[in-house]
């Protein structure tokens, strides 16, 4: 459903992403891994529209997203979370979800009546998402008052509120312990079971290897491997790439 074709992004002479082609299928959890600076974040930013690619296209269900602005891609069904949390801190938990739900829906309906209609944060959809994210008891607190783990859950809920087809998770386990990682894996499966395709960008190998249906590995902006977790772990290019960056190597072997 989500297809990257010969996607490149050059910053001056730096080829941050260099001719990457990927196809992510409907309903799968797809892991995107690679050493630091391998082009994972740039790839995410090309998919969501922060950067315009130097070459190549991004398509979703056959629709070409390449020329669309970020908010238009959200309306098409692309959502993401951020590695460094970017919630609307002064808005309540429920309002954070309402903004995302509304920003998405205002493109369909005539926006004026919708934009001046108060009290929409008490909708059944938002209640359901709050329960799903175990944030129901915090719904009227400002988002800045949440704990770190709750903020991460709210980020994911906010991304889901825009009713996406595909959800990009940018290092959702950053700063989480191993036990949190187990819970996170269940949550990501829950998201997939809601019918949302997941693209997971992650450093925590245990998590990626454990839940991904397929994995692609980037190094120096190029795709060096793609396949099932077992295939990727067995790939000699992947091992070489991770041997270059010392810490990741052990994780890969032990995972």
């Amino acid at each position: 459903m989500l297809t990257l074709e010969n996607l490149s992004k050059h910053f001056g002479g730096v080829h941050a992403v260099d001719g990457v082609s990927l196809t992510i299928h409907e309903g799968e959890i797809f892991g995107l891994i690679g050493p630091n600076g391998s082009g994972k974040s740039t790839t995410v930013n090309l998919i969501t529209g922060l950067y315009a690619p130097t070459t190549g296209t991004v398509t979703l269900d056959g629709y070409d997203l390449t020329a669309m602005a970020q908010h238009e891609r959200t309306a098409m069904g692309v959502a993401r979370t951020f590695q460094n949390i970017r919630l609307f801190g002064n808005l309540t938990v429920a309002q954070n979800l309402w903004v995302a739900q509304n920003g998405h829906e205002q493109r369909r309906a005539h926006f004026l009546p919708r934009w001046f209609k108060a009290g929409g944060e008490h909708s059944p959809d938002i209640d359901e998402l709050l329960k799903f994210s175990r944030l129901h008891s915090k719904r009227d607190l400002p988002a800045s008052a949440l704990s770190f783990g709750e903020m991460r859950r709210l980020e994911m809920a906010r991304a889901l509120a825009s009713n996406p087809r595909v959800l990009l998770l940018d290092e959702p386990a950053a700063g989480a312990s191993l036990e949190d990682g187990q819970l996170l894996a269940e949550r990501i499966r829950d998201v997939r079971d809601r019918g949302v395709t997941v693209l997971l960008i992650e450093h925590m190998m245990e998590l990626v290897m454990g839940i991904s249906d397929r994995i692609a590995v980037l190094n120096f902006g190029r795709k060096i491997a793609e396949g099932s977790p077992a295939e990727v772990q067995a790939n000699s290019d992947v091992r070489a790439a991770y041997l270059g960056s010392k810490h990741k190597d052990e994780e890969l072997i032990h995972a």
Binding site: T48, L50, A69, Q70, H71, T74, A75, A79, R80, F82, R86, L87, F88, V99, A100, G103, H104, E105, Q106, R107, R158, A159, A161, S162
Partner: peptide
């Protein structure tokens, strides 16, 4: 940035 990605 997050607002744009919420579809705003």
């Amino acid at each position: 940035r997050a607002a744009a990605l919420c579809g705003i």
